[in-house]
């Protein structure tokens, strides 16, 4: 196989990952399909500019991130309306704490988990936990933690207050923490 054919077959193999990431961030299958198509076209058209300095996969994911940002900008009105509606519902995590604000069940000791970051099973579990976050919460959380936008930018683009933004990110992090603990660290501790 020559280099070009090799890159094309790698691109085809990357499609499921691209789709998974686009769906996680956009929370809309049709938008995600558009973004993945645009990404794959761009990856083929821009192939001459791929210099092989980064990994091909990293380069393609970089294109995907740009396409996702473009898509979110185009859909900003819908995204912002959904976010405002969903962020009104209150979730206080009261069930996790006693009346003095202490955790009812203490958080587990996760040990020194650095090495799990390179394992597929851990990443698959993490993706599943992010997927379980409700739509707007997941979008805001990934904008912050995956696309690495500043919180002030996110609030401004989505027309939500800074307080609301912080509450949403707090809720997302707490939910993710519970999910990862239940589905990974508690199981390891029990095993």
């Amino acid at each position: 196989m020559n280099d070009v054919a090799q890159l094309d077959s790698t691109l085809a193999e990357l499609q499921p990952l691209l789709m998974k990431l686009a769906r996680l961030q956009l929370r809309n299958d049709a938008w995600a399909e558009d973004v993945v198509s645009e990404t794959m076209v761009a990856a083929i058209e821009k192939r001459p500019s791929f210099e092989g300095r980064s990994k091909y996969r990293t380069w393609v994911v970089g294109i995907l991130k740009h396409k996702i940002t473009d898509q979110l900008r185009r859909r900003m009105r819908e995204v912002s309306t959904e976010t405002q509606m969903e962020s009104v519902e209150t979730e206080t995590f009261d069930e996790l704490y006693d009346e003095d604000g202490r955790r009812l069940s203490p958080p587990l000791d996760w040990g020194d988990p650095e090495d799990v970051l390179s394992t597929q099973q851990f990443m698959a579990m993490l993706q599943a936990c992010v997927d379980e976050l409700p739509g707007s919460l997941g979008r805001v959380f990934l904008l912050r933690e995956w696309l690495e936008y500043e919180t002030t930018e996110i609030c401004k683009e989505l027309s939500i207050t800074a307080t609301n933004c912080h509450v949403m990110l707090f809720r997302a992090r707490m939910r993710l923490r519970e999910c990862v603990e239940t589905n990974w660290f508690a199981k390891r501790a029990a095993a």
């Binding site: 996680l24 851990f122 993490l126 993706q127 933690e145 995956w146």
Partner: peptide, 9 residues
């Protein structure tokens, strides 16, 4: 830190 790797899985 884990979220920064989410696109690798």
């Amino acid at each position: 830190r884990a979220m920064r790797h989410i696109d690798e899985g």
